[in-house]
Amino acid sequence: MHYPDLAAFLSDAPKRLKKGPLALVMVEDDVEVASTFAHLRRFGFAQIIAFAPPELPFTTEATDVIRVDHDTSSDQALQRMLNGTIKALPGVWLFYCYNAEYLHYPFCETRSVGEMLSFMSEERRDSVMGYVIDLYARDLTARPNGVDRTDAYFDKSGYYALALKDAGGEPLERQLEIAGGLRWRFEEHIPKDRQRTDRVSFVRARAGLQMLADKSWSLPEYNTYACPWHNNLTVAVPSFRTAKALRRNPGSRDAISLFHWPQSERFDWTSTQLLDLGLMEPGQWF
């Protein structure tokens, strides 16, 4: 199915998409689009919706992928898509990512995304905190766009967390700013507002919920990594997006000849590796 614009999709969504979870993919370019869909398909999402510029040539013959023409490079494109979808589909669990990003959650090899969200609902949580893990190719001569799924690497250390503060300088309860990966090592090439790696990856749509300009959520509890009484499950989103950006920009491309460094580790595409390194946690889900 193909919608000519966001408005047409949002008008039709309440009739066609009453149940989730839904995967919302912001397609920015033609890199690893099919592999992104294939990866999400493994987890049992009720539907994958791809938002992409009209001129981007990819097709959606698969019945579980809906294409929506949407200028994903425009200002606040993500917020317009998410906020419209939230308003159209109250009560539905939504996951969002970009192409060349690959969701992992604890035990995802044997448990569906529906099982994970059912557990989070039992925990009285309406959001799931995630952390973007920068992936990159080892050989940038052979892989000039920085993307290599067959030989992907990431930083196994070098991550840090700072407490987020309110306008008065007081720490916000259970809210953290996470940094690390390529965005930390090459911060001089990354705008300050794009250096954070924490991302609330799943939300359950409800009245009054909106993603704000800084990508935080209008309901404060949605921005927290855990409930007040114990730690909750978190997810990871290994992503080539930063590597692509650093290789696409002429200034950073000419300044950076290698992403690989002594703290690089080859990604084995398992949740176990990410759990062992503390890049996500199962909370009380065993």
Rank of each mutant, 00 (worst) to 15 (best):
H2E: 12
Y3W: 10
Y3L: 04
D5N: 15
A8Y: 02
F9A: 04
F9D: 08
L10D: 10
P14A: 05
R16Q: 15
L17P: 02
K18M: 10
K18A: 14
K19E: 15
L24T: 07
V25T: 12
M26L: 15
V33L: 00
A34T: 13
S35I: 00
S35K: 11
A38K: 12
L40F: 06
R42V: 03
A46E: 15
I49M: 05
P54L: 04
P54Q: 10
P54M: 01
L56F: 11
F58D: 02
F58I: 06
T60A: 14
E61Y: 05
A62R: 15
I66Q: 02
R67G: 03
D69W: 07
S73E: 11
D75L: 13
Q79G: 11
L82C: 05
L82S: 03
A88R: 09
A88Q: 09
L89K: 08
P90F: 05
W93R: 04
Y96Q: 11
Y105G: 04
T110L: 00
T110E: 12
S112L: 07
V113C: 08
G114Q: 13
G114N: 12
M116A: 15
E123N: 07
V128G: 06
M129A: 14
G130L: 06
L135I: 09
Y136Q: 02
A137N: 03
L140G: 05
N145H: 11
T150Q: 14
T150Y: 01
A152Q: 03
A152W: 00
G158A: 04
Y160T: 09
Y160E: 10
A161T: 09
A163Q: 14
K165Q: 14
D166V: 02
G169E: 09
E170I: 07
E170A: 14
P171F: 04
L172R: 15
L172V: 07
E173H: 10
E173W: 04
Q175N: 02
A179F: 10
A179V: 08
G181M: 03
R183V: 01
W184I: 00
W184M: 09
R185N: 08
I190L: 02
I190K: 00
R194T: 03
R196K: 14
T197L: 12
D198V: 01
V200C: 08
V200K: 07
V200A: 01
S201I: 13
V203Q: 05
A205L: 06
R206S: 13
D214W: 07
K215G: 01
E221L: 12
Y222C: 03
N223I: 03
A226N: 12
C227K: 15
P238S: 06
R241D: 09
K244T: 08
K244N: 03
N249M: 10
N249G: 00
G251S: 11
G251I: 09
L258H: 12
L258M: 11
L258S: 15
W261T: 12
Q263N: 13
D268E: 11
S271I: 05
L275I: 11
L279T: 01
L279H: 13
M280L: 15
E281H: 12
P282G: 07
G283E: 09
Q284I: 00
W285H: 09
